[in-house]
Design a protein around this nucleic acid. Structure first.
Length: 509
RNA sequence: CGGGGAGUAGCGCAGCCCGGUAGCGCAUCUGCUUUGGGAGCAGAGGGUCGCAGGUUCGAAUCCUGUCUCCCCGACCA
């Protein structure tokens, strides 16, 4: 069957991923190492994610604010584990002026060296912690819950668009609480928010769980994640939530007077999701014809393409399209007005149709003179592009019932995309392996391996290091300990010790 | 950051070894024909060959440096 992309998922998944991004006009190279230009269609998807996530964040009583891009090195140095975790990937500002280098170029002015270097934030715990120290005096000031939408920079060695870029966009929530129980409750609330968001908005099923010790955020006491399975079976960590204990509060001085009159350090949390989720959407829903955008995050849900012939009949077609767009736009889907776009650009309608299909617009409607005369239209749904015979599954409904049913149609596409991905996730987690040979056999013989969930002994220290090395030899990593896993049983295949909990293992991005 | 590959028109590529007027396909534009599923024919426009030096009468081509991308590894909350 002929497809819109030249690379298929089966032939070269990594190349396919890049082709989708290019073909859907989502993002492109910027000329700056590891940084991308996010184009309107990609950014429009991000704006949708922002809006729907922001609604949830605010509904939880968290307020938005904004903190500086630059963080004094001294702030950052206060939490030792945090520094160790990020020091190797830091962008540092050392000068504030340029001068001519005598060769026609510019160079930092040695006279303008900063007294204290500024780092470009890789995350904002330290600078937000400093503010929280000022804002929190009394137990009455807690909990303090803030969030910011921002860009952060991490100088990664190897970058991939949306999945791991030097600069990325995200939201980072930061909260301070009077005690451990309250902070842990917030950590898990944020995790559940991410799980629900991923499932219902991104139509991307995930497993929520706790990261093993060695995968924790630097400085955290506990890290939780949502893990999504891509179409190549690899895991993508799509959101994290951390219980930070009191170490960041101690480093920043977030101290308060309790109702009993003594002093205590706050228990803090942080949680984040980023533009990486867009990479997850691509690798969850994309197919060999490009992207498929879940209707909830599609910048436009319905595209109307008039089939113009540059003759006197065009005016009637455009009138018909305009009134159809208005009627569709007055309908609701997924709790919002339907987002309709009338593509009035000149050009061949076939070319425009494929452009929108590659972008993944959920529904493409084409209108020709015959439709105007008959009061009908031609509709293509992106989640079910082809008929069994390989031709486009275009339908030709009457206008009025189509308009009345658009909300239900978009909702069914949203549901359908989720169901497809959920079936794939469920089918590719193996839960009955009980020994190391079984793990090796699974990953060596399965053409597109997914994940295995095993009972393990939760080793720590050197024993954990040994286990990490052992699975690394198979290019595997421990993903998380699912919150809703069944009880552990038997012996840990990795250590031979009695198992205490269930953990997911798989290849990861 | 180590090993490998690549950068030539909007996109995909050839030309480079062996230096001598910048090529092809798709896309774009024009004309004619066509017209309900990515139309056909004819013609046209578009590139300081990633960037900076060097060698040479002459550099896309040879040399040096540098930037960016891709693959493998290391790294990756």
């Amino acid at each position: 069957m002929k497809h819109a992309l030249t690379t298929t998922r089966a032939s070269d998944f990594a190349a396919w991923y890049q082709e989708v991004i290019a073909a859907a006009d989502m993002a492109e190279e910027s000329g700056v190492r590891g940084c991308m230009v996010i184009r309107p269609w990609g950014y429009g998807i991000w704006e949708r994610i922002q809006r729907l996530m922001d609604d949830r964040i605010k509904a939880a009583g968290v307020q938005n604010c904004y903190f500086p891009l630059f963080i004094p090195l001294s702030y950052f140095a206060k939490e030792a584990e945090h520094v160790d975790g990020f020091a190797k990937e830091m962008a540092v500002v050392t000068h504030h002026r340029l001068i001519a280098d005598g060769k026609g170029g510019l160079t930092p002015d040695p006279e303008a060296k900063l007294e204290e270097p500024l780092i470009v934030r890789p995350t904002s715990e330290t600078v937000i912690g400093a503010a929280m120290a000022r804002w929190v005096q009394s137990w009455r000031d807690l909990p303090l819950m803030v969030n910011q939408w921002a860009n952060v920079v991490r100088w990664e060695m190897r970058t991939r668009m949306f999945l791991r870029t030097s600069e990325f966009l995200w939201q980072e929530g930061h909260t301070a609480h009077a005690d451990r129980a309250d902070a842990m409750k917030e950590t898990l609330r944020a995790l559940e928010m991410y799980r629900e968001f991923s499932e219902t908005v991104l139509a991307m099923p995930v497993i929520a769980g706790e990261k093993p010790e060695h995968e924790r955020f630097p400085g955290a006491e506990a890290t939780y994640s949502i893990e999504a399975m891509m179409q190549d079976g690899k895991a993508l960590q799509a959101g994290t939530s951390h219980y930070l204990g009191t170490s960041f509060a101690e480093a920043a001085g977030i101290r308060f007077q309790t109702s009993e009159g003594d002093h205590a350090f706050a228990h803090t949390t942080s949680w984040g999701t980023s533009t990486r989720m867009i990479g997850g959407v691509i690798m969850t829903h994309g197919d060999d014809d490009g992207l498929r955008v879940p209707p909830a995050i599609a910048p436009f849900q319905v595209i109307i393409v008039p089939m113009l012939r540059e003759d006197e009949g065009d005016a009637a077609i455009l009138d018909y399209c305009a009134s159809l767009a208005a009627e569709l736009g007055a309908q609701s889907a997924l709790g919002e007005r339907v987002r309709v776009h009338l593509d009035k650009r000149p050009g061949k309608s076939a070319g425009k149709r494929w452009e929108w299909l590659k972008k993944g617009a959920p529904v493409v409607v084409e209108i020709g003179g015959r439709d105007v005369a008959a009061g009908k239209l031609a509709a293509i749904r992106r989640d079910a592009l082809y008929r069994d015979d390989g031709k486009l599954a275009t339908e030709f409904p009457e206008r009025a019932p189509f308009v009345a049913g658009i909300g239900a149609l978009l909702e069914s596409i949203q549901t359908n995309l989720h169901a497809e991905a959920k079936a794939r996730l469920d089918a590719n987690i193996v839960r009955d392996i009980v020994d190391w040979d079984g793990i090796v056999h699974y990953f060596k013989t399965t053409p597109v391996p997914g994940w295995v969930e095993i009972s393990w002994s939760r080793p720590t220290g050197a024993a954990l290091d040994a286990v990490v090395e052992k699975v690394k030899a198979l290019k595997l990593t421990m993903r998380n300990v699912p919150l809703d896993a069944v009880a552990a049983s038997g012996t840990c295949p990795l250590t031979g010790e009695p198992a205490v909990e269930r953990i997911l293992i798989g290849r990861a991005y």
